Simulated assay, not measured.
Amino acid sequence: MSPTTEAAEGPLYLDKAVPEIYAELADTSKQIRAAADAAGLSESLLELINLRVSQINGCAYCLDVHSKKALRLGEDPRRLAVLQTWQETALFDDAESAALELAEVVTRLPAPAVREEVEDAARRVLGDEAYAVVAWAAVMMNSFNRLSIVSHHPVR
């Protein structure tokens, strides 16, 4: 494969350029949803995680997609409006708070001592199975954010 010397016009959508890899990501996302269901985690909570991770990463495309989905699932618009500052409200229960904090740690990757403190607390609240699903959901959303940001996916 030789490099192209001509500048391409418009964005290169990675999901379209190599659809086989994108299909694997989409399949992994489906597996995470199934594991969440088995662990007793709601689809609405997964959407809150997707939104919070997308807020941190600044992915407009994913924020658009997942806010619409959260609303379709019946999520309270008030909770969506304050999600960026969820810690300053009483609108999220202990499990939701643990999941959101874990998703933030997975996304930001703070110092090991901070990570371990949050991870330990999240495991106590969520249990190992739900903890693992939340961590996988955050990892996957970070991947989708980067895919959309690098591809310049538009918000239409």
Score class of each variant (00 low, 15 high):
S29C: 04
L12G: 03
A39W: 15
I32F: 01
L45Q: 14
D15K: 02
N50Y: 08
L45E: 12
P11V: 01
A35Y: 12
I56Y: 10
G40E: 11
C59H: 04
Y22N: 13
K68Y: 13
G74A: 09
A36P: 10
A38R: 09
L63F: 04
D37R: 14
C62D: 10
R79V: 11
K69T: 15
L51N: 14
E47D: 05
D27M: 02
L12R: 13
L71W: 13
S44V: 11
L46V: 03
A39H: 14
G74C: 06
L45A: 11
P11K: 05
A36R: 13
A60F: 04
L83F: 04
R33L: 02
N50F: 08
E24L: 08
A34E: 15
L63S: 01
L71T: 14
N50G: 10
I49G: 01
L25T: 09
I32D: 00
A26P: 03
V18A: 09
A60D: 06
E47N: 07
S29L: 04
L48M: 14
L41Q: 07
L83G: 00
E43H: 09
A36M: 10
G74R: 10
K16F: 07
I21F: 14
D76K: 08
R79T: 07
E43I: 07
L46W: 04
L41D: 04
L63Y: 02
Q55G: 00
A26S: 11
K16A: 07
K68A: 11
S42A: 10
D76T: 07
P11M: 01
P11F: 04
C59R: 03
V82G: 04
K69L: 12
D27G: 03
K16D: 05
Y13T: 02
V53S: 14
D76Q: 03
L80C: 07
S44C: 02
T28P: 00
L46Q: 12
L14V: 13
E20K: 03
T28L: 05
C59L: 06
A38S: 03
L12K: 14
I21C: 05
A81Y: 04
T28W: 14
L46P: 03
D27V: 02
L48N: 12
A60C: 05
L63N: 09
A35T: 06
Q31P: 00
